[in-house]
């Protein structure tokens, strides 16, 4: 696996879409977290949808990344939904002791989309392109390691 490969982030209006399709090593997970936070700030996204249906494992590191992404997005006024967690992964997470507190989950992409109100009900409606170069810098998103 390429040590510097990154997970692509797709932009759809005010929504950021991520489909995790490889077994991420830890640096990749950290990079995704940084990239996503940067993109939320740059694009003014109001929703983040992360599809993990291809993942056959979520361990404490990946679980923490998901929770951290949701927490940082919240601070930046964006909602996060994690979709497609496999049953075996969910069962294992519980036994591992990871609660994914604060992370909204949905069965599939369609249901996840429905949980992101900006996409379902008001696509770019009343808000113009606001300037989002706020006081948050990308460096703030880098977790201490």
């Amino acid at each position: 696996m390429d040590g510097d490969s990154r997970i692509p982030i797709l932009r759809m209006g005010r929504l950021l879409l991520v489909t995790i399709q490889v077994d991420m090593h830890d640096r990749m997970a950290v990079a995704l977290q940084e990239d996503l936070t940067g993109q939320i700030v740059r694009t003014g996204a109001t929703g983040v949808l992360i599809d993990i249906s291809a993942l056959d494992l979520v361990d404490s590191f990946i679980g923490r990344m998901l929770a951290d992404i949701a927490a940082m997005a919240r601070v930046l006024d964006a909602a996060t939904v994690v979709v497609g967690m496999r049953p075996a992964v969910a069962i294992t997470l519980v036994e591992l002791g990871l609660s994914l507190e604060g992370v909204q989950t949905a069965l599939n992409v369609e249901r996840g989309m429905a949980l992101l109100p900006s996409v379902a009900t008001e696509p770019d409606a009343d808000e113009g392109e606001d300037e989002d170069d706020g006081p948050v810098s990308e460096a703030d998103a880098a977790p201490a390691r």
């Binding site: 056959d56 075996a88 992964v89 591992l96």
Partner: peptide, 17 residues
């Protein structure tokens, strides 16, 4: 079984890390 596979692999991921 799939669930048992997942539990073992997750445990090993933690220990290897």
């Amino acid at each position: 079984r799939l669930v048992d596979q997942t539990k073992l692999v997750t445990a090993v991921s933690e220990l290897a890390r």
